[in-house]
Design a binder for these strands. Structure first.
Lengths: 361, 361
DNA sequence: CGTCATATGTTGCAGTCAACAACAAATCTC
DNA sequence: GAGATTTGTTGTTGACTGCAACATATGACG
C-alpha cells in the first residue's frame, strides 16, 4: 500500500468519495463536488473509476425542479463492500452482513444453551460471509486488543476471543465491546448524530458503557460502568471488589427481569418501587463519576437500563445532579436509543467499514 | 488553503518533515527518508525548500563511523516558528516563548497579588512575542472552547478568557487546561513517551486531571478530579455539591502547605500521618472511578499531589486496588512527573505547534 | 414554441508532484 | 589505492488535480 505519492492522493480521494456516500446516502455529482471540495472533472474521473470497479452506480437523477442540466445521481452498491458483524450475548449470537451504505443484506441468529461456545455459533453464522472485507465481533465486556479481559455477561476473563475466532473461521476478526459498538451505531445510524460526546450505557447481564467523541470510538474506552464502586466496602462482587454498581444492583435481581419490577412498581408495589428508586440512585452516582471523567453531552440508556431509566428517571437525574458539576450537568441530555437491539450490530459493521475504507483501493 | 491537489500533497509532506524534526530532533536526510517513507530525491527537494524559507538548517553531519558517503544533518531553526505559551496560576503567570524543536527561547514571569487580573500580566509578558505563530494559555480548571467553565484555583466560573485575551493583546489565543497541557508536555518532552494512555494529575488549589491518548490530548477532557464525589452527602464544596474530593481534602488544609504536613508526619506526628493516609485513600477512591472510566496505563502525580503520593503511596495504591478491576490495575504505572513546573508550559507550546504545523505552509 | 438563462457533465491541456534510475560524491575496508 | 558502500544529485517519467472551454439538458418567459 502506497503511503505517499500522487496515487496515494487518488486513493484517498476515492475512499473519501465512497465514505461520503456510505455516510450520507445517494448524492448527485454536484453535491459530491461541493462536499469533497474537489473539481467537477475530478469527481467525474473518480466516479467513472468506481463505477467500472463496481463500487458505485450512476443513475439519471431525480428532477431537481430548478433550471439547469439535471445531475446524475451517484449511489454506492451495497454488495460491493460488505462487512460481517456479529453480536455475542450470553443467550444468543446475532449476525448481520452489512453492505456499503449501511443496508443489512443478510441476518441470522443462533440461540445458545448452557455450555455452548459462541465461537461455534459464529462459525456457523458467518459461513457464507467469506466475501466480506472485514469481520467484527461485538462482545459485552472489557475488550483490549482482541482479548476479552473481563465480561460479567459471558463469565470470561482474559479470553483471547480474536484468536479463537481466527482459528475457527480462518479469517481475521476485530473484536470490539458491545457498548462502544452500540454508541457508534446510534451515532452513525441512529438519531444521536448531533452529539459530540456520546455515552452509551449497555445493560445486559453486566453494565458497560461506550464513548464516541466526534463520531470516533474511544479505543480502550470500554467503560466498566458496572464496576464503578458506589458503596465502598459494600457487597462483594464476582470481580473481587466490593460495592460495585453491579453487585449493589444485583441485590434487586432484575437485570434479568426488569419488566417484572416495573410492572409491580406501577401496580403500587412499594418494595419494587423502592428498589427501582435505589437502583436509579446508585446508577446516577456511578454516572456522576463517569460524567465527571469523560464529559459527555448525551447519554443513551440501552438494554434493560432503558426500562430502569424510563421508570426511575427522577432518582437517576437527581443522583447525577448531586455528583456532577453544574457545567457538565447542564449540557447533558439523557435519552433512550432508537435502534433497539440493532445498534451494536450496526456499530460493529461501521467499525469494519472505517477500517476497510481507510485502506481501500 | 488548498484542501486537495498536488500542492496540498507537498504541503503535507513539508509539514510532516518539520514535525518529524520538531519531535525527534536533528536527523540525517537518510533517517528522514526512512522515517517519512519518501524517496531520497523528494526529501532533498523538501529540505532545499525549507532551507530557503529559513525553517531548517543543513550541516555536514557527524561522521557515521561506517562506510558510505556521510549524510547531511538536518535540524530545524528554533526561531523560524515560535509559540507563545502562558501558564496561569492563582499567584503568578509564567510565560515562555518556545521555538521549533521545543527549545525555550525566552522566559519570564509576573507575580500576582490579590486582585490582579491575569489578563494584564499576560499582556505585559507577551508584548514582544508578536512574531509567534500561535499563542496558548494554560488555565487550571474546566475549559470548554476558550471559556473557563469552572476553576477552583482562580475562582472563575464561566469566564470567556479567550475573548478577554484577544481584547487585551489583539491576537488569537487558544485556552487549554493546565492538567491536559502538562500531560501533553510530559508525554512529548518528558519521559512518559511510552505510555499510550497517560493521566496527569495536577494538584494546585484545585485538583484536575488531563488525559493524553497516543500522544493526543483528549479534548473536552479536562477532568475535574477534585469534584469526584468520594463521600456522598459529605462536606459542602464551593461548587455546590457535597463530598467532593476537594472539599474532603480541604479539611486537612495542606493543598497550600503539603511540605509542612509531610514533615510533621515524618517527625512522628500521628495526626498529620493519619491525615495523609486518609487523603491518600480519598484520592485513591476518586482515582478508582477515573481509572475505570478512562483506562489509563500511567498516572503522573503533579503539583502538590506529588508530595502526597510520595508520602502516602501505600494508601493511594490500596484505595485504587479496592475500586478498580484487576485488569485495569495491573497495567497501571504510578509515577511522578519529570518536568516539574515546566510541563504545562511545554504542553501548551506543543498544542500550539500541533495547530501551526497542521496548517503550515 | 423558440430563445435565453442556468446548472451540470465532458474534454483537452497545463502545472505540480513524487518515484525512479543512473550518476556523482564521499567515506571505509582491505 | 581499488573496490565496496552509502548517500546526495539530476533528469526523466507517470499520475493526478485544477482549469477553462465546450457540450448538454432542463426551466422560465414571452
Amino acid at each position: 500500500m502506497a503511503r505517499t505519492g500522487t496515487e496515494e492522493l487518488r486513493r484517498r480521494n476515492r475512499a473519501a468519495l465512497l465514505d461520503q456516500l456510505h455516510r450520507h446516502g445517494p448524492q448527485t455529482r454536484a453535491e459530491l463536488t461541493e462536499a469533497l471540495g474537489l473539481n467537477r472533472s475530478t469527481i467525474a474521473t473518480l466516479a467513472v473509476d468506481l463505477s467500472e470497479s463496481g463500487h458505485l452506480q450512476e443513475t439519471t437523477g431525480r428532477p431537481t425542479g430548478s433550471a439547469g442540466r439535471p445531475s446524475t445521481l451517484v449511489e454506492c452498491v451495497p454488495e460491493a463492500v460488505t462487512v460481517a458483524a456479529v453480536e455475542v450475548r450470553a443467550d444468543r449470537v446475532r449476525f448481520g452482513l452489512v453492505g456499503l451504505g449501511g443496508e443489512v443484506l443478510e441476518r441470522s441468529e443462533v440461540v445458545l444453551v448452557e455450555g455452548d461456545d459462541p465461537v461455534e455459533a459464529v462459525k456457523k453464522l458467518t459461513g457464507e460471509a467469506a466475501a466480506a472485507v472485514d469481520a467484527v465481533a461485538a462482545v459485552p465486556g472489557l475488550v483490549d486488543s482482541g482479548i476479552v479481559a473481563h465480561s460479567t455477561e459471558l463469565g470470561w476473563a482474559g479470553r483471547d476471543f480474536a484468536a479463537d475466532l481466527v482459528r475457527a473461521t480462518g479469517r481475521e476478526w476485530q473484536v470490539v465491546d458491545t457498548a462502544t459498538a452500540a454508541a457508534v451505531g446510534e451515532w452513525s445510524r441512529g438519531d444521536a448524530h448531533e452529539a459530540t460526546r456520546l455515552l452509551y450505557l449497555h445493560g445486559g447481564r453486566g453494565l458497560t458503557a461506550g464513548l464516541v467523541v466526534e463520531g470516533r470510538a474511544q479505543r480502550g474506552g470500554s467503560i466498566q460502568l458496572g464496576h464503578i464502586v458506589v458503596e465502598p466496602g459494600g457487597r462483594e462482587c464476582a470481580c473481587g471488589l466490593r460495592g460495585c454498581l453491579e453487585a449493589e444492583m444485583e441485590a434487586f435481581g432484575y437485570a434479568e427481569d426488569i419488566e417484572h419490577a416495573t410492572a409491580a412498581a406501577s401496580m403500587g408495589d412499594a418494595t419494587a418501587r423502592d428498589g427501582l428508586r435505589r437502583s436509579g440512585e446508585d446508577l446516577g452516582r456511578a454516572l456522576g463519576a463517569v460524567v465527571t471523567a469523560t464529559g459527555p453531552d448525551e447519554i443513551l440508556f440501552g438494554g434493560w437500563l432503558r426500562e430502569l431509566y424510563l421508570s426511575a428517571a427522577a432518582p437517576v437525574r437527581s443522583a447525577i445532579a448531586e455528583t456532577t458539576l453544574p457545567h457538565l450537568r447542564s449540557r447533558l441530555r439523557l435519552r433512550t436509543p432508537v435502534l433497539g437491539d440493532e445498534g451494536a450490530l450496526m456499530g460493529a459493521a461501521e467499525t469494519g467499514f472505517a477500517a476497510a475504507l481507510d485502506q481501500m483501493c
